[in-house]
C-alpha cells in the first residue's frame, strides 16, 4: 500500500464506510421487510448510494496513489445503474405474474380480468 496524504486516506476511508453502511442497510431491509414487493426496494440502496460511494473511494485512491487519473470505476457504476432497474423490473413482473396465477397475496388484478366478470352478467341486454 503506497503512502497517500492523510486527508486522502480519511476521505477514502469515510466514503468506503458510508457506502458499506448503505449496502448493509439495504440488505437488512431485504431481510426485515415482510412482503416481496417491499423487499424489491431494498437492494437499490446498495446499487445506488452504496456503489457510488465505494467506487468513488476507489477512484480517488488509485488516482492519488498511481499519480494518474483512474476513472475506470465509472464503468462498473454505469453498468450497475443500467442493469439493476432491468433485473428488478423483470423479477417484480415475474412475481406479479406468479401471484396472479395463484391469486395469492393481495396484488392488483390485471386489466381485463375484472372485465370478464362484467360480461358474465351483462348478456341480459342483448
Amino acid at each position: 500500500m503506497s503512502e497517500v496524504p492523510v486527508w486522502v486516506a480519511a476521505l477514502v476511508g469515510g466514503l468506503s464506510i458510508l457506502g458499506a453502511a448503505f449496502t448493509l442497510l439495504g440488505c437488512i431491509g431485504l431481510a426485515r421487510f415482510n412482503s416481496f414487493y417491499a423487499r424489491v426496494h431494498a437492494p437499490t440502496l446498495g446499487t445506488s448510494l452504496g456503489s457510488i460511494a465505494i467506487l468513488l473511494a476507489s477512484a480517488i485512491y488509485f488516482t492519488v496513489s498511481a499519480q494518474r487519473p483512474a476513472v475506470h470505476e465509472v464503468l462498473i457504476l454505469v453498468f450497475i445503474s443500467i442493469t439493476t432497474p432491468v433485473t428488478l423490473m423483470l423479477l417484480a413482473r415475474a412475481a406479479l405474474y406468479r401471484d396472479r396465477a395463484e391469486s395469492s397475496g393481495d396484488v392488483p388484478l390485471q386489466w381485463g380480468e375484472d372485465i370478464v366478470v362484467e360480461r358474465a352478467d351483462a348478456p341480459s341486454e342483448g
Binding site: Y37, H41, T44, T47, S48, I82, P85, L88, M89, L96
Partner: peptide, 12 residues
C-alpha cells in the same frame, strides 16, 4: 428505469 432505480419506488 428512473422509477425503479430510485429506492422506494418500483415500476411493475
Amino acid at each position: 428505469c428512473i422509477i425503479t432505480a430510485t429506492p422506494g419506488s418500483a415500476w411493475l
